[in-house]
């Protein structure tokens, strides 16, 4: 492969993200992707509500956002991985997200070994100073086959 410019890789990862049916169904948008850091936002939608009395989004939808964002961060790591899957993901819920506002997640793949990628992520609504949730996860690492051998 000759085209390994950052722009090309970013475009590839973006297309990959947008080709994830569940993420697309939740209206997720990739806002930033570079060097092991991903930012993805998810618009407020009534169908994601977990508490009908308050209109607060269900924790499960926040999990889906955190998982997508974490996986994207792994894929954008400078080591150039070709695939990843979640091994484990733990989410801490700090507070309910404000109804009516989008949720934005930022994930950082901060360490990669031969077989594991480590990620931490934070989710915010309109209040940048108070996170809605934080997450830590471990992901599998699929590397390109060496020398073209299978």
């Amino acid at each position: 492969m000759t085209e390994k410019t950052p722009e090309f890789k970013a475009k590839l990862a973006r297309q990959f993200m947008e080709a994830i049916p569940h993420s697309r169904h939740l209206g997720m948008r990739l806002d930033h992707l570079e060097g092991g850091i991903a930012e993805i936002s998810m618009p407020y939608d009534k169908k994601l509500v977990g508490d009908p009395e308050t209109g607060v989004i269900h924790g499960g939808a926040v999990s889906a956002l955190m998982d997508t964002c974490s996986g994207a961060a792994v894929m954008s790591h400078p080591e150039g991985l070709v695939g990843t899957a979640t091994i484990d993901l733990r989410i801490d819920y700090m507070r309910p997200a404000t109804p009516g506002h989008q949720i934005r997640a930022r994930a950082e793949c901060y360490h990669v070994t031969r077989s594991v990628a480590f990620v931490r992520a934070t989710a915010f609504d309109e209040d940048e100073d108070r996170p809605v949730a934080t997450a830590t996860g471990a992901f599998t690492v699929d590397r390109p086959a060496a020398g073209g051998a299978k």
């Binding site: 080709a19 994830i20 049916p21 569940h22 993420s23 269900h58 924790g59 499960g60 939808a61 999990s63 889906a64 956002l65 955190m66 998982d67 997508t68 996986g71 899957a85 979640t86 993901l89 989410i91």
Partner: peptide, 17 residues
Amino acid sequence: LIGNPALPALHGGVTAA
């Protein structure tokens, strides 16, 4: 509910949810 159309596999977020 799909996360990886190539396999295909359920989205990890769906499993967690």
